[in-house]
């Protein structure tokens, strides 16, 4: 009965540079969403409820109990909302890979803003833009001058612009993990120290992976997943397929591997790893079964895109977070 009397939590969900999958993952708790609604008022969630930014601006500081912020910081609007929500929120959660470590949008850091604009507004096969018009940050319309977001050169994870309380990784986070974390907050359980990664274990994917693993980790040839006939049982690495599982934190329930696809690293680094891409590169290179420089180079030739392979989700939070 006491629970009923407790004031409802105020929950906000926001998407910055994101695909929308994170918002869907919240919906993916299905009927449990009703349990969420029972204890929390959704005060802001652009994808689902009609509340404007100016409504958020009017909220008192610290008004929102929990904000699940998904998406990376790609433009000035993302940054503005991150700062605004930080101000208005008690517990700010970087929700999903993009807010956590940069995610797929972060792959844009292999290019500069100029390269992206040139490609998108001039060169792309479907572009018709004879005047080579580029996005503007302000535009005159009948009603006056409009300010538009500025596209940044760098994609950033959320904690590059504001302090983050917790990280809930995944692309998208496993819905159950969201629910567990949410329930813990609602019930006022002992929360982990600030800046913790939640909804994960301390171990890496292999700990949950049921494929057969041995110490035979020597590779003469690397394969893309479609180039092998996967037996569904043997460790991907032992089949020469690059799997980021050992350098990726567990918590997703090895969804990809169970679906016979190697882990691509969306759950981010294990606790003691600063740069999971570099760690994985080190491990993968060590597995190469050759000592002759030419042979080594030949084998490495088979890894077409080391940057995109090893930093698929983590480029903006890597030691080299973009090309120079």
């Amino acid at each position: 009965m006491g629970k009923e009397e407790k004031p409802k939590l105020k929950l906000a969900i926001y998407w910055a540079a994101a695909c929308g999958g994170c918002c869907v993952s919240v919906l993916d708790v299905h009927e449990k969403l009703l349990d969420v609604i029972a204890v929390a008022d959704l005060v802001f969630w652009p994808i689902a409820i009609d509340i404007k930014y100016k409504d958020v601006e009017k909220m008192p500081d610290g008004y929102i109990d929990v904000t699940l912020f998904n998406g990376a910081i790609r433009n000035s609007e993302n940054e503005y909302m991150a700062r605004l929500l930080r101000l208005k929120t008690k517990i700010l959660v970087a929700y999903g890979s993009c807010a956590h470590i940069g995610g797929i949008p972060g792959l844009a850091n292999f290019s500069t803003r100029e390269e992206i604009f040139k490609r998108v507004y001039e060169e792309s096969e479907s572009t018709v833009n004879p005047d080579k018009i580029r996005p503007q940050t302000e535009v005159e319309v009948e009603e006056g001058k409009l300010d538009l977001p500025e596209f940044f050169n760098d994609v950033m994870p959320l904690d590059e612009v504001v302090c983050v309380d917790y990280y809930l990784p995944g692309c998208p986070p496993q819905s159950e993990r969201f629910f567990e974390v949410f329930t813990a907050i609602v019930n006022g359980l002992d929360l982990p120290p600030k800046k913790s990664v939640v909804g994960v274990t301390d171990k890496s994917q292999c700990d949950d992976c049921e494929r057969k693993k041995t110490d035979n980790k020597l590779v003469k040839r690397f394969y893309r997943p479609h180039e092998i006939e996967d037996d569904g049982e043997t460790c991907f690495l032992e089949q020469g397929v690059i799997c980021l599982g050992p350098a990726t934190r567990s918590g997703c329930g090895v969804r990809c591997i169970k679906g016979n696809a190697p882990c691509r690293g969306c759950y981010g680094p294990p606790p003691d790893v600063a740069d999971p891409g570099a760690k994985m590169m080190s491990a993968i290179a060590t597995m190469i079964d050759a000592n002759d420089p030419e042979e080594i180079e030949e084998i490495i030739e088979q890894i077409d895109d080391p940057g995109g392979t090893f930093y698929r989700y983590s480029l903006p939070s890597a030691i080299l977070r973009r090309t120079i």
């Binding site: 301390d202 171990k203 890496s204 994917q205 292999c206 700990d207 693993k213 041995t214 110490d215 035979n216 980790k217 020597l218 460790c235 690495l237 599982g245 050992p246 567990s250 294990p270 606790p271 003691d272 491990a283 060590t286 597995m287």
Partner: peptide, 14 residues
């Protein structure tokens, strides 16, 4: 660190 080791066995033959 047994709390972190995931048992991938990459290290063993190294």
């Amino acid at each position: 660190n047994e709390n972190l080791c995931c048992g991938c066995q990459t290290c063993i033959n190294v």
